[in-house]
């Protein structure tokens, strides 16, 4: 049995393989909009490597975290702007 980690994306539990990034968990939960742009467009990850900042979400209350650079931890509370 591979190790897993459970995070909560917008109130819903998502089980991921240990070591997964938060961005992957958000997409796996069926959420594709990560934040709203300055004119209100829904946006999701683009670069996947910490450069574009389009994957930013709120993690455990801290806003503007790049979800593609954050490793999932058990019980993590992740909120998108959808």
């Amino acid at each position: 049995m591979p190790e897993t980690v459970t995070v909560i994306v917008n109130g819903v539990s998502v089980i991921m393989p240990a070591g997964s990034m938060v961005s992957a968990a958000i997409l796996a939960s069926g959420t594709y909009g990560f934040h709203r742009s300055v004119t209100g467009e829904l946006r999701g990850p683009l670069c996947g490597m910490g450069i574009c900042f389009e994957c930013r979400v709120t993690i455990d209350g801290e806003a503007h975290c790049r979800s593609c650079q954050a490793v999932c931890k058990n019980g993590m509370d992740v909120r998108t702007d959808e």
Binding site: S20, M21, L27, L42, G44, G48, C68
Partner: peptide, 21 residues
């Protein structure tokens, strides 16, 4: 190109490598 799920080639690969089904 700004629609969600339009991603970098390396970007999508990185996401899959780090857990995206």
């Amino acid at each position: 190109w700004t629609l969600p799920n339009v991603m970098g080639a390396g970007g999508l690969q990185a996401l899959v490598k780090t857990g995206l089904p």
